[in-house]
């Protein structure tokens, strides 16, 4: 029944909305919007003007508002349940992917920080061999400085030394069981105008295993994909989790507005 000052269209749409029952507000709003568009099209078809009688005729073609509301609620319920299920499954999948990505990032982070191989007679021999084979690129502006360190002692090899001497020093300094890192720095000769004497070459710091995988003379190569993997995995986790976080924040905001 029409309320005071309410035309047949508004009264009809209100009754349909009342019949939509437990459907989520967004779904109810969409249905009413769709029916309103239909009513407006019907008015446009009769010259754009419809008095109360004409409006009543138009809504009369829809049949009972309560019945239409109930029928639409029934038809939509499956879709709403399907959407809810899809949201739950999608959310779980996103959290699972984010979890795996965080795990991968943490694993590679741990490898980067703690995964320093221990020196053994075998790998020390290999390192020494790699040193011997390595021809470091040098120029008039800079040369390269290699560090082998176990976080406590640093052993440096300059490329102006004879490789055999450097190898002998290395084998003397690094003992089996030491956790070792290799770092290659670009050293400016003379010190650059900003006073930086030693500038790390990008992405050279690496573990022995990776270093040994470099081609001989590859002092400037950048092998540690670990950092790239950490960045990609972290971004992936962020992308996966962001919709959930946004939905949670949105829900909280809506509740606050409602409570307010």
């Amino acid at each position: 029944m029409a309320e005071r000052g309410e035309g047949p269209f508004e009264a009809y749409l209100r009754e349909v909305a009342a019949g939509l029952g437990e459907l989520p507000p967004a779904a109810r709003k969409e249905i009413v919007r769709e029916l309103r568009a239909h009513l407006e099209d019907a008015v446009a078809a009769c010259g754009g003007v419809a008095d109360t009688v004409r409006q009543a005729e138009i809504v009369g073609r829809f049949g009972s508002a309560q019945r239409l509301g109930r029928a639409l609620a029934l038809a939509r319920r499956g879709m709403v349940e399907g959407e809810a299920m899809r949201r739950v499954v999608g959310g779980l999948a996103r959290w699972a992917v984010a979890g795996v990505a965080i795990l991968v990032a943490a694993l590679f982070g741990a490898l980067l920080v703690w995964g320093v191989p221990a020196a053994t007679p075998d790998n020390l021999t290999e390192i020494a061999g790699a040193y011997g084979r390595t021809v470091l690129p040098a120029s008039a502006e800079h040369d390269l400085l290699i560090e082998v360190h176990d976080h406590a002692t640093i052993f440096r090899v300059n490329d102006d030394r004879v490789p055999e001497i450097a190898v002998a020093e290395l084998l003397r300094e690094v003992q089996p069981g030491d956790r070792i890192y290799l770092t290659v720095y670009k050293r400016f000769l003379p010190a650059d105008p900003q006073g930086r004497g030693i500038v790390p070459v990008a992405a050279i710091r690496t573990d022995t295993a990776t270093y040994l995988a470099l081609p001989a003379g590859g002092g400037g190569a950048a092998p540690p994909y670990s950092r790239a993997i950490i960045v990609v995995a972290t971004l992936l986790a962020g992308v996966c989790v962001w919709p959930e976080v946004r939905a949670t924040l949105g829900g909280r905001r809506r509740r606050m507005v409602t409570a307010g």
Partner: peptide, 8 residues
């Protein structure tokens, strides 16, 4: 009838 169309 519109009342049948939209539920369908």
């Amino acid at each position: 009838k519109e009342g049948s169309l939209y539920p369908a």
